[in-house]
Design a protein around this nucleic acid. Structure first.
Lengths: 68, 68
DNA sequence: CATAAATTTATCGCAATACAATAAAAATAT
DNA sequence: ATATTTTTATTGTATTGCGATAAATTTATG
């Protein structure tokens, strides 16, 4: 499964979800859904905004975990 | 911008697009589109299949490049 | 505690987009 | 040359993102 984990980078940047929301320009509701891995797909434009806001790479946020 | 680059991992695994297509279960046409960064979004389920097929992480395929 | 602030969850609607199916064109290999 | 592989294009359908909004829940704070 693919895991979206924004929390680590948020902590690293000492940034709140509210601030991320402002920077990314999505609604708070959707940022929250994204943040908690409750989306089934993601627009690359959105991924880009997040990477930009958190100054990180997709790999810092996305993880593929084999299910055993 | 977000760049999708599957070529590096394909080369590393000595795998053809045809084989990737078989493993991933999409049509050849769509794998090609994905491979050449001509999609605007991606299903996490698809990303997962690719990572599984290539035995790699999303970060091996996706790159955020700041446009200067 | 009580209350405010932040975050998550839920619902509806629409637009955007993936992806299949298919065919044709182009590139590459043999 | 010819076969094989890969890319590009087109159309239709199903999926999904995301906004807008409101309610519920969690967390912070005086």
């Amino acid at each position: 499964m693919i895991i979206i984990n924004v929390d680590v980078m948020l902590a690293k940047r000492k940034m709140s979800v509210t601030e991320l929301t402002e920077r990314v320009g999505l609604t708070m509701a959707n940022v929250s859904l994204l943040k908690n891995g409750k989306v089934k797909a993601i627009k690359l434009s959105t991924l880009e905004k997040i990477c930009k806001a958190l100054d990180c790479q997709p790999g810092d946020i996305l993880e593929y975990r084999r299910d055993d």
